[in-house]
């Protein structure tokens, strides 16, 4: 793997068996450079979410090879994959996924408490910072279940940032946001790749969002049809 690559896939394929056996992904090979802002586009049902679950190490039932940060993760033990997710990957899901019984602050803190790199006060301080970036500082102590959909999605982004992961993955991370908040999130992502050399891989339906990213990969029926989609 080259010096500045952070993620690499070799000929990844995946089958679904329900209701009948069909190949949902085929021959997926691409590289992602560190600090790149990459978007994935394609028609609904073409396999974008499925691919993202593979990249995130949560789905291990595939063929081919996945390498993140110079470590081949294909075939690794579940405990090691959990460590990798905790330390190196931040997620933002298509639908807001917070723990409803905890405050926003706690939701953001939990992955950092799991990582245990910082003391508790430090973690709390950092969580406030991340919430502040997303304009949510005032809501920090509210229970997550009391927030609107858009607010929850932004808390989830703050949570994805807490451990300063190498890669932030998002499945339509702005799907629930109005245009104002979408542009805020876009700017944050841009700043993360430029200022902090972090990598973004985001599935999106929003063509403007994709156009403004560094590179767009286009999928069609489970295959890559364009490794660097050009917008006219």
């Amino acid at each position: 793997m080259e010096e500045n690559l952070v993620l690499k896939t070799n000929n990844i394929g995946k089958y679904f068996y329900d209701p009948i056996k069909f190949k949902v992904l085929e021959g997926i090979s691409f590289d992602v450079k560190q600090g790149e802002f990459l978007t994935l586009v394609g028609k609904s049902g073409c396999g974008k979410s499925t691919l993202l679950y593979l990249l995130s190490t949560m789905d291990t039932d595939y063929e081919g090879e996945l390498i993140i940060d110079n470590e081949t993760l294909t075939g690794k033990k579940p405990d090691r994959l959990a460590e990798v997710r905790n330390e190196k990957i931040g997620f933002v899901f298509q639908f807001h996924y917070l723990l409803p019984e905890f405050s926003c602050l706690k939701n953001v803190m939990i992955p950092a408490m799991k990582l245990g790199k910082y003391m508790r006060e430090e973690i709390e301080h950092r969580a406030y910072e991340k919430l502040d970036i997303l304009g949510l500082k005032d809501l920090a102590l509210k229970p997550a279940s009391k927030l609107s959909g858009g607010q929850q999605q932004r808390v989830a982004i703050a949570r994805a940032l807490i451990n300063d992961p190498k890669i932030i993955m998002g499945d339509e991370p702005t799907g629930n946001l109005d245009s104002k908040n979408t542009s805020i999130v876009f700017d944050i992502f841009k700043e993360l790749t430029r200022g902090h050399n972090q990598t973004i891989i985001a599935v999106t339906h929003d063509n403007d969002f994709a156009k403004a990213s560094d590179r767009t990969i286009e999928l069609l029926d489970g295959k890559i049809v364009n490794l660097n989609k050009q917008w006219d």
Binding site: P78, Y97, L99
Partner: peptide, 16 residues
């Protein structure tokens, strides 16, 4: 189930 999925996604292992 949702909470468990989130915890696992954010790096909690089966043991946790």
């Amino acid at each position: 189930l949702n909470d468990i999925a989130i915890l696992k996604a954010t790096g909690f292992s089966g043991k946790d």
